[in-house]
Simulated scan of single mutants.
Amino acid sequence: MAQKKIALACSACGSRNYTIGANPNRTERLEVKKFCKFCGEHTLHRETR
């Protein structure tokens, strides 16, 4: 069975740069500082649904 994928979107420009596997036990949206290649800096990326 394939795992459901969720995208991480940059909070500054809105581009969806990263994908992660969905976790049904997580109740809040994941927020991680990652590098955005469009902004050129480390920004906060939030889980989209």
Rank of each mutant, 00 (worst) to 15 (best):
R29W: 04
I20L: 06
G14W: 05
C39E: 13
C10V: 04
C39N: 04
L44C: 09
S11R: 05
I6N: 05
T48H: 00
N23R: 08
A9G: 03
K34N: 08
Q3V: 09
K37T: 06
R46M: 10
A7Y: 07
P24K: 01
H45A: 07
K4P: 12
E31Y: 12
Y18M: 04
H42F: 12
C39M: 02
L44K: 09
K4L: 13
Q3S: 15
A7I: 07
S15G: 07
R16G: 07
E41G: 02
R29N: 08
A2S: 09
V32R: 15
F35M: 01
H42M: 13
H45Y: 10
H45N: 09
A22D: 13
N25D: 12
E41I: 09
Q3C: 06
C13W: 07
A22M: 06
T48N: 02
T43M: 08
N23F: 13
F35G: 00
A7Q: 10
M1S: 12
C39H: 04
F38Q: 05
Q3M: 10
A2C: 04
K5N: 11
N25V: 07
K37S: 10
A22R: 00
L44R: 03
K37D: 06
C13M: 07
Q3T: 12
T43A: 01
K33C: 03
F38N: 15
N17V: 06
E47I: 06
R26L: 13
